[in-house]
């Protein structure tokens, strides 16, 4: 079973900063991070007209399906996927085996440049997530939901 995913403000700022720099240095349109269960962690760039929730869910499904394919041919997983479109392209990579980094780019960039920048950003993101996982495992880190009452839960459904 995967450990509980938690995100704090401090790490979120660090992660966003890395994604923003990646978008800039790779000339990308959009960069976003998703966990393997399909939850969106962060997104930067021209996301206004984009359904990021759906993108996150489908990306995770895509990674899961290709992971299934990988196992069938004796691989652990495919760590990089690339989808080429007429205008826009998707570069998807798995970071530290736990989160998915997606870069959307067009002709203003190139696959080579994106791969190069993604590699650098992956190392940095990996370090941040390592720290985050340690923080989560500290006893007493606790869930913010530990103190909610049954009434709180009922109120959610009262209307």
């Amino acid at each position: 079973m995967q450990p509980q995913m938690v995100m704090y403000d401090e790490e979120f700022q660090q992660i966003s900063a890395v994604c923003e720099r990646l978008a800039r240095e790779a000339n990308a349109k959009i960069v976003f991070l998703v966990d393997k269960n399909g939850q969106l962690i962060a997104s930067v760039g021209a996301t206004e007209n984009l359904d990021t929730t759906s993108l996150a869910s489908l990306t995770a499904g895509n990674i899961a399906a290709t992971g299934g394919l990988a196992k069938l041919i004796g691989e652990k997983e495919f760590s990089i996927l690339f989808h080429e479109g007429e205008k826009d392209n998707l570069h998807i990579s798995i970071i530290g085996g736990r989160v998915i980094l997606v870069v959307i780019f067009d002709t203003r960039s190139s696959l080579g440049l994106v791969r190069l920048r993604v590699k650098k950003a992956s190392d940095e993101l990996n370090k941040i997530f390592d720290g985050l996982m340690k923080k989560v495992q500290v006893p007493g880190a606790g869930s913010p939901f530990a103190e909610i009452t049954d009434d709180d839960i009922d109120n959610l459904f009262s209307e």
Binding site: V6, M7, F12, N37
Partner: peptide, 15 residues
């Protein structure tokens, strides 16, 4: 597993 995001103050669950 649920995803608790303190930064955006969200909790995400999968059914």
């Amino acid at each position: 597993m649920s995803f608790i995001n303190y930064s955006s103050r969200e909790i995400n669950c999968k059914i």
